[in-house]
Design a protein around this nucleic acid. Structure first.
Lengths: 364, 364
DNA sequence: TTTGGCACTCGCTTATTGTGAGTGCCAGAT
DNA sequence: ATCTGGCACTCACAATAAGCGAGTGCCAAA
């Protein structure tokens, strides 16, 4: 326990009572975190004395460092190593000390360029954004598939296959194509299917898909005598389309650059990497995490254990929601080691979210 | 140099002059490889003497082992370790010594079951096969997308989007849906696009897609005066669809279980794994390799460097082509460490190829 | 042709010892 | 009231050495 010039001093000066850190301590913490992010090695009092610009001897620095440690902002991995930021340290750094660097013109242009695909499908835009995020940050990029509140029925088309099976192609919103195969209890020829499709398109085009589903269900419970064969078939088939929907398009994400994480020394343990990659494949946990970010205003950051998922204990996740029109439809972000260059990653994620939204919107 | 009972002896006895190995040497090699595959540790003369069933002393075994080493079938990783199979050793083992185990009923049923999906799209079958291969072998499964010689035009549909753009949906073969977005120099309304689609479908339905393309190109060079507006628009748009085809659906594969490879000790070097995974993502090299296997009759095996790709130096690849009807359309297989249980993997890959072919075919 | 014996090799593990970066604390300087 | 030089101390890490043990090649005898 250090009492000599411990809590007391730190709490008083600098007018930063809430944080428990006076100006000097904050500055030193900032330099320490920056330094650790740069080199990945514990930072000692000598280094800090040299590079802080404060003209203090290592001994004085050590006093401050002891305080910072006691308050939980930094730890020493072992007795005679320098100090390393804790999650709390990173958190304070990110929340209060971080000077977010404005992006260089060059980088802005690079990002724009990557998203300026010729005639993109919505999906190819997402894939591109994800790839770009991973390439530019040398970490893992992730973009959730957009999930609109309102999904507009655009067009449906049925084609006959063999064995009483029918290929159903449903187009929603602006060019999102979904297709599935239906097994029916009798066969229909092209013309009949054409009619069925027409019937449905006339009734439902432009309507919200949830409304369509509700109407379908209520139609199905109506007395069947009051419908003609065509109507009945149409409604049954449309309902079958919706039955099998959901799980695949249901919700997931596009990821890129997983292998980038293997280049970071702090993640070089094969077993940890395996678990991480497995979580990436599983999608479940990552998706839950990203889902939380959809309600946030802008960039959101989870540092280490903050995410609440053990596999991400040594990772940080920087996310931002993206919107089409004025509706937030998805989240994108970057996954990397806690020791990442936040001041660079944050504006990159921020900008990408905005540009992706714009790109999706302009093509709407 | 061992001359005492070196080449001479081995070449004579056993009537296996071509191979350079007499019966006893072959048997010992077999036991050694099996043992090494099981335990992953260099096999010494003592172990072999105990487990070969030959009632020979370690000393005698050592003589044989010295010969096997001189002929290049095995090596000692260092002076006082046991021996390990070389690529040549594995190759001889696989070609001549291997007793392919018939699959257990249980396993056969497991495989069948995994491929018995309710109303699968072609793609979901491939994905399922790949996942199943990886799960059952605890290695990485891969299935190339089927590439038919003959691709039949089934149906095309155009839907108007904003800004002179059109969504084109092309269905080929039995339920394979491709869609892309075309930017045009003027706008068309639904009705016009409907007409254009009809025109094309009437002309091309059932035709091979290569033929269609050829006809389109020759039509385009015809004097344009002799066509009406509808025809011109139809042909231009169809040609645009083909222009942008190819790279995406062009050729690639579905992979599963990459992370399984991280559990094999011999691949636990992060840098090697990174390169391997990067090659998986790149697809290029792997695809070249798989393409070679499409001409093979049945199961094909590449052991270590045999593949010709450096990233696969420590891996073996077991593949088999799969067919729809009597046309070979793709390749599937398993990628794992050289030290894999070939006698199990080979029949699994073989059976999976047959069942996948059957599944694709039955739904045709 | 096979085998027991024997000297030898060499990768591992464990213990030992430095070395150096970094620390905490104290007493004296500012 | 702070800061700093000094000093003893800690501890990860690297280098060196020693012992073990599995395995080897070769030889001479069975």
């Amino acid at each position: 326990m250090r009492m000599q010039n411990g809590d007391g001093k730190l709490n008083m000066a600098g007018g930063m009572a809430e944080t428990g850190l006076n100006e000097r301590a904050q500055h030193l913490l900032k330099v320490l975190v920056e330094r650790y992010i740069r080199d990945g090695e514990p930072v000692g009092s000598r280094t800090l004395s040299r590079d802080s610009g404060l003209d203090l001897s290592p001994a004085s620095i050590r006093n401050v460092m002891a305080d910072l440690e006691e308050l939980g902002f930094i730890v020493a991995p072992h007795t005679s190593a320098g100090r390393v930021p804790t999650v709390k340290g990173y958190r304070f750094f990110v929340d209060t000390l971080l000077a977010v660097k404005a992006l260089e013109q060059q980088e802005v242009r690079l990002i724009q360029q990557q998203l300026a695909i010729h005639d993109p499908t919505p999906h190819s835009l997402l894939a591109s954004a994800s790839r770009m995020l991973s390439a530019i940050t040398r970490m893992t990029g992730v973009v959730t598939l957009p999930r609109r509140e309102h999904i507009a029925w655009r067009h449906i088309e049925f084609l006959p296959l063999s064995d009483n099976r029918v290929l159903a192609i449903l187009v929603v919103n602006e060019g999102e194509v979904q297709n599935r195969i239906l097994s029916l209890d009798r066969s229909y020829d092209s013309a009949a299917l054409q009619q069925i499709g027409n019937y449905l398109n006339i009734h439902f085009a432009g309507k919200d898909i949830h409304v369509v589903r509700a109407e379908l269900l209520s139609e199905l419970t109506r007395t069947r005598e009051s419908m003609n064969n065509l109507m009945l078939a149409a409604i049954t088939m449309a309902e079958k389309v919706f039955e099998t929907r959901g799980q695949e398009s249901g919700h997931s994400y596009v990821m890129a650059g997983e292998t980038n994480l293997m280049e970071w020394a702090e993640l070089s343990d094969v077993e940890k990497l395996r678990r991480l990659f497995e979580a990436f494949n599983q999608q479940r946990d990552i998706l839950h995490l990203l889902d939380k970010c959809i309600v946030a205003e802008g960039v959101q950051i989870f540092i280490g254990e903050e995410s609440g998922y053990r596999v991400l204990d040594e990772c940080s996740v920087v996310t931002a929601p993206y919107s089409v029109g004025d509706e937030v439809v998805g989240v994108l972000g970057v996954i990397g080691p806690t020791r990442m260059a936040y001041e660079r990653v944050i504006p990159i994620v921020d900008l990408t979210a905005k540009l992706l939204g714009a790109a999706l919107n302009s093509r709407k």
